[in-house]
């Protein structure tokens, strides 16, 4: 009798993705090129096979992405025959909707919110699927799988719908939309082990490579024209890799020799620094994430 081991977290995520396709008219998968959104694409493939994934991908491009990520994104979309929509933070800046941050910690990370909300409006998306996980950060621990956002994209943590058993309620008002988090219950290690088991392709910057970097506040920053650097901050070449892949201005590297999936997974298993510890934007304040979420940040 042929059967297989069913991973309960994978089955739950597939169930959620099918609910999205069934309950919403214009869903979209928010794709950053990071490992979590790549995992979502694999789960969506599994959920709808042998049909194609019944929603497009949306990438909010800060213009400060690692080139390796963009190249990876384009190859993935081509290989799987997916529809990709790209909206640029640079356009929001040019239109005067947001102002570029200046100085030591300048980042386009928070500016993405405006571009995202505009894209939701433009395409009338009613469900945005994201790769956030509850284990990432304390404010995320209370996030729902279907999280209703008002016309302004805001999250009201005190007024969330209870989610009982497997039943998801995606009913919304005109103008509202729902953020959907299919891998809510996964941990960072779950994601890495899944990528390894499934042998999923990921961008090269997740593996150890030589890179020009500089050190600030105990973190390792990429040295290039997009990242503000003081004259005394010395550039050195190091073997590094990234644990999260976001904007260059807010993603710190870690020293690593791990250059295969096996060694990366082993490193994560041993590691005692949490993934968000390498996110520069969260270091700004303990309540940083919660504040960003309230104004519509993913």
């Amino acid at each position: 009798m042929s059967t297989i081991y069913f991973n309960p977290k994978e089955s739950e995520s597939i169930h959620i993705l099918r609910e999205v396709a069934a309950q919403f008219e214009r869903p979209v998968l928010l794709f950053s090129g990071g490992k979590d959104s790549i995992t979502l694409v694999r789960l969506a493939q599994k959920a709808f096979y042998p049909a194609r994934i019944p929603f497009p991908l949306l990438h909010i491009d800060t213009g400060h992405n690692f080139p390796e990520t963009i190249q990876f994104r384009d190859e993935l979309v081509k290989e799987l025959g997916l529809e990709l929509i790209v909206r640029n933070v640079q356009d929001s800046i040019d239109q005067g909707k947001v102002r570029e941050e200046k100085g030591r910690y300048a980042s386009r990370n928070t500016l993405q919110t405006t571009t995202l909300l505009d894209a939701i409006e433009e395409f009338k998306f009613d469900a945005c699927i994201g790769g956030a996980r509850r284990d990432e950060e304390k404010a995320r621990a209370k996030e729902r799988v279907f999280s209703v956002r008002d016309d302004f994209g805001q999250w009201d943590e005190k007024n969330q719908r209870p989610e009982l058993f497997d039943m998801l309620n995606g009913r919304i008002e005109q103008g509202q939309n729902v953020r959907v988090f299919p891998i809510s219950n996964w941990t960072e290690l779950d994601v890495w082990e899944y990528i390894k088991t499934e042998n999923i392709k990921i961008p090269s910057i997740y593996f150890a490579h030589k890179r020009e970097v500089f050190f600030r506040d105990g973190l390792i920053w990429t040295a290039n024209e997009h990242v503000y650097r003081e004259p005394h901050e010395e550039v050195v070449e190091k073997m590094v890799r990234f644990r999260t892949v976001g904007d260059m201005t807010c993603t710190a590297a870690v020293l690593s020799e791990a250059d295969t999936l096996e060694t990366v997974v082993e490193e994560i298993r041993q590691s005692t620094l949490s993934e968000r510890g390498a996110r520069i934007d969260d270091k700004r304040s303990e309540a940083a994430m919660e504040k960003r979420k309230k104004v519509g940040y993913f």
Partner: peptide, 12 residues
């Protein structure tokens, strides 16, 4: 892409 003879409870 796998064909199975049997599925267990909890499986999508």
């Amino acid at each position: 892409d796998q064909e199975l003879d049997l599925a267990v409870p909890g499986a999508s």
